[in-house]
């Protein structure tokens, strides 16, 4: 019997490997191999007109944090890189926060509709996804530019005397990102709010919690997995965003995605581009770790 059992286990494990292998192949070819190329590139020197020279160097990595002075080769903490990184972080965190601010009440609203209406609302939330990102971004551009709809309306209403410069500001970038990524916040928050036991809200209210306290003490903590998942889903694409800073920020203020593109394009410094890409990846990974640490443990217990 023992040998039969072990044969069966062997067959099972072989089947499992066979089943997994296509996925593994995709992961290796599609993710690990290119990543490896990027890692290797980051330790080489730039080729004369793009590409790389196969001379090992830590220079690209040094330059992520430090600037070699233009003129005397001394190292100083890199103002440019830090500023771009900080801007990316600030803008993507602000985007995440604004998405939460708008997305949470929206998700709550949907979750408290009756089941039939909920589906309609959810469908409406996903409507923007039906259109290409570029087109949506151009639409926002048209909305907020000086002769755009918002300024024209405000001017006509006599609320302002000259158009407000909205386009090509950090605010415009934020607005665009919030618009584009809001559904990514609403959906996971909705999912955890929908699972929320209504009785808990009554229980809190019964125990002298005013409506705001009910929100703060019960609804928010219990929808934390959704809030964190939504924040991660918004934060990651925001920090790596490329199109929005160009179209809505006017390309004046680089975000890290544009900075990377610059290195692989006109900057002709692929190793440095690789090094910053990996830095960005590191940041994203830290964000994911926070998610795994804090998002997972609680909240699954009820329901």
């Amino acid at each position: 019997m023992a040998s039969l059992e072990s044969t069966r286990l062997k067959t099972e494990s072989r089947t499992r490997w066979l089943l997994i292998s296509p996925a593994m192949l995709v992961v290796i070819i599609g993710a690990i191999a290119p990543l490896l190329v990027i890692v290797i590139f980051s330790f080489l020197t730039p080729g004369p007109t793009g590409g790389v020279n196969f001379t090992p160097s830590f220079d690209a990595w040094t330059r992520v944090l430090f600037d070699r002075d233009l003129f005397d080769d001394t190292l100083t903490l890199s103002g440019t890189n830090l500023e771009i990184l900080l801007r990316s972080l600030t803008l993507s965190l602000a985007t995440t926060f604004l998405c939460l601010l708008v997305g949470f009440p929206t998700a709550y609203f949907i979750a408290t509709r009756n089941p039939l209406n909920r589906e309609v609302w959810l469908l409406l939330v996903t409507v923007p996804f039906w259109t290409n990102l570029l087109i949506r971004t151009f639409a926002i551009q048209d909305l907020i530019r000086n002769e755009g709809i918002i300024n024209t309306l405000l001017l006509k209403a006599g609320l302002i005397s000259a158009p407000i410069q909205i386009l090509f500001t950090n605010f415009a970038i934020c607005l665009g990102l919030v618009y584009v990524y809001l559904p990514l916040m609403i959906l996971p928050v909705y999912a955890s709010l929908e699972r929320l036991d209504r009785n808990l809200l009554e229980a809190a209210s019964d125990l002298y919690a005013r409506p705001f306290k009910v929100l703060w003490e019960v609804i928010v903590p219990l929808s934390k997995p959704g809030i964190i998942a939504g924040s991660i889903l918004v934060f990651i694409p925001s920090i790596g965003t490329y199109v929005t800073p160009i179209l809505l920020g006017g390309g004046r203020n680089l975000m890290i995605g544009n900075y990377i593109e610059l290195q692989f394009g006109q900057g002709r410094d692929w190793p440095f581009g690789s090094a910053i890409s990996l830095t960005l990846m590191g940041i994203v990974m830290v964000a994911l770790l926070i998610y795994i640490r804090h998002g997972d443990t609680r909240g699954h217990e009820h329901g």
Partner: peptide
């Protein structure tokens, strides 16, 4: 014309400083 790679690198650093 394209400048020498070393000089291009210098120019691209300046350009990045401007865009930051």
């Amino acid at each position: 014309t394209l400048c020498d790679p070393k000089i291009t690198q210098l120019y691209s650093r300046i350009w990045q400083d401007v865009q930051k």
